[in-house]
Design a protein around this nucleic acid. Structure first.
Lengths: 125, 125
DNA sequence: TAATAAAATAGGAATAATTCCTAATATTTT
DNA sequence: AAAATATTAGGAATTATTCCTATTTTATTA
């Protein structure tokens, strides 16, 4: 923890690591307040930027104008519900995964962002 | 043209169709002003939203907090320069393309957004 | 064509996500 | 413990985008 000394930064990271919901800064802020009541929104934004710079988290999508974050930094694929904005991790076939890596490798791409769109269960109705 | 009667809407669409740069609303606005000097930014935004709703254009990415648009609505893949934000269309191997479509088909996804990140030539230096 | 109805617009105000600023506080180093 | 450094709260500033309304343009009808 030597590099995460500040209590606010720890809270931001911990909140993000403890959810699969790919939350917004605002949502992370709300969760952090339960741990540290007087934490400020600016601090959440600053630490998200800092953690992203360090490669400890990633900005995973922009849904309806709002950035969404993820503490899972290993490559993975997302599905976003165009209706409610829900973001989920999804598995893909080995075949597709291999083809993605090969493409990135062949062409010298630094990173891959693959997102599928599909209505979630709740929005199907 | 029956459905694109307004001169402003035509200008917005024409500007977007005549570039490969995946421009922002602001950039489209500037180009439109060369054709229609008193066009307003709000009109550009409104027509972009309307054209997107109609499926005539797509919102292709959000780069540094700014939405970028594209008049090419057939599925294709993008490469974004993380340094300057440049957005380009790229070709992918048949293998990858097939794997993407198969995945979407198998899982019932409505659409696919694949973006690779890599520094552009200018930013390489 | 002229009159009427409907759609679209300019211009600017409002909104909302994010960034920036500064005095105060916490943390680290000496 | 004192000095130096990093971080923070709180709120102001910024900026992309949306919203509002009186006016104008376009389409429809007679």
């Amino acid at each position: 923890m030597a590099t995460n000394y500040s209590s606010r930064r720890q809270a931001v990271l911990q909140v993000l690591q403890s959810t699969k919901s790919h939350p917004s800064a605002e949502s992370i802020f709300e969760q952090c307040r339960l741990l540290i009541p007087n934490i400020s929104l600016g601090t959440v934004y600053r630490n998200l930027a800092l953690l992203e710079e360090r490669g400890e988290i990633i900005k995973v999508a922009n849904v309806a104008g709002v950035d969404r974050y993820d503490a899972t930094v290993t490559p993975h694929v997302h599905r976003i519900c165009p209706c409610c904005g829900r973001v989920d991790d999804v598995e893909v076939s080995d075949n597709l995964r291999d083809a993605l890596y090969k493409e990135a490798d062949d062409k010298g791409y630094q990173s891959i962002q693959l997102t599928f769109y599909a209505k979630c269960k709740e929005c199907e109705e």
